[in-house]
Amino acid sequence: MKSRCIALDADGVLLDYNQAYAQAWQRAFGVRPEERDPSAYWAMDRWGVKRLEGEQLDRLRAAFDESFWSHLPAMAGAIGACQQLDTAGFELVCVSAIHPRYEAARLRNLQQLGFPIARVIATSHGDGSRSPKAAALERLMPLAFVDDYLPYLRGLPPRIHAALIHRQKRGSPNTGPELSLAHSHHEDLAAFATWWMKEGHEQYD
């Protein structure tokens, strides 16, 4: 039987890391930063924060703990999109570039929000010529993989449909010749789910 699996990135696709970043900053320093640019791709550009070093940087990093990774809010429309795909019989797996020690926290976060996801695969980060998620996706061999970070589409098996989410555009890495790595482009996960259900899956089922 063919796989009915769809692999989904977490931050920026399922979960709103940028909103959670402001919460982490508030936990570390007691003040929620002002929003500077809601169209910014990176959290540090979105919020009115400064680059830190030394003790202050250590304090911020300490806020990205088990509790932080257990309580990120959902991206708008993401839960409904996943429920739509799940109802249609697709198995959803989260493949996330997060440290493996937070894998269980990420799964707990998703399930508490109501995502129909029973498995998280943590791959850690990487910025090389091949996506740090590629090896996990080769083993999983889903029909499709959805991410919002173009470099993480590098080196994927060509049989996997690579879908790219284009969220906040300012400072986005989702530009240039490597856009050809994506087989389809979508505004958010809800747009992907609608397209996949109408026509996308027919190429892979």
Rank of each mutant, 00 (worst) to 15 (best):
Q112C: 08
Q19S: 14
L60N: 03
R59T: 15
V13G: 01
H71P: 10
C82A: 04
A193F: 09
F29G: 00
L72M: 15
G54I: 09
A28P: 09
V13A: 03
G77Q: 05
E35I: 13
A43F: 07
G155Q: 04
H201T: 06
N174C: 10
F115P: 11
A22Y: 09
H99I: 00
S129V: 14
R36V: 07
D37P: 09
Q168P: 15
M75W: 04
G80Y: 02
G30D: 04
A40W: 00
C82D: 14
L57Q: 13
E66Q: 12
I160G: 02
S96M: 10
R119F: 02
Q26V: 15
I165E: 05
E55V: 07
P158I: 01
F192M: 00
R27L: 14
A40Q: 10
V13Y: 06
E178A: 12
Y17P: 02
P142L: 00
R108A: 15
W195V: 00
K133W: 14
Q83M: 08
I6P: 00
H186N: 11
E103C: 12
V49P: 02
L52Q: 11
I121E: 04
R154I: 10
D127L: 15
I160K: 03
G126N: 12
L143T: 06
R108C: 13
P100E: 01
F192A: 09
A20M: 06
G89Y: 13
L52N: 05
R119P: 01
R61E: 09
V49R: 06
Q203P: 09
A81G: 05
A74L: 06
S184E: 07
R170M: 00
Y41G: 09
P177S: 10
W195G: 08
V146C: 03
P151S: 01
C94F: 06
R170S: 11
I160P: 11
P158V: 07
L143E: 04
R61D: 08
K133M: 01
R61H: 12
Y17E: 03
Y152M: 05
I6D: 04
Y21K: 03
W42L: 07
E55W: 03
C94G: 08
A63E: 04
R61T: 01
S124R: 14
Y41S: 11
F192V: 05
G54P: 13
R167F: 08
D16S: 09
A134M: 00
A24T: 02
A24K: 03
L72F: 01
D147N: 08
M1T: 11
A118I: 13
V95E: 04
E34Q: 11
L14D: 07
L140M: 08
L189W: 06
K198S: 10
P38T: 11
F115T: 12
S172R: 06
A22P: 06
I79T: 03
R4M: 14
V31S: 14
L14I: 04
P151Y: 01
K133H: 12
S96T: 14
L15D: 09
R46C: 05
H166T: 09
M141I: 14
V146E: 11
P177M: 12
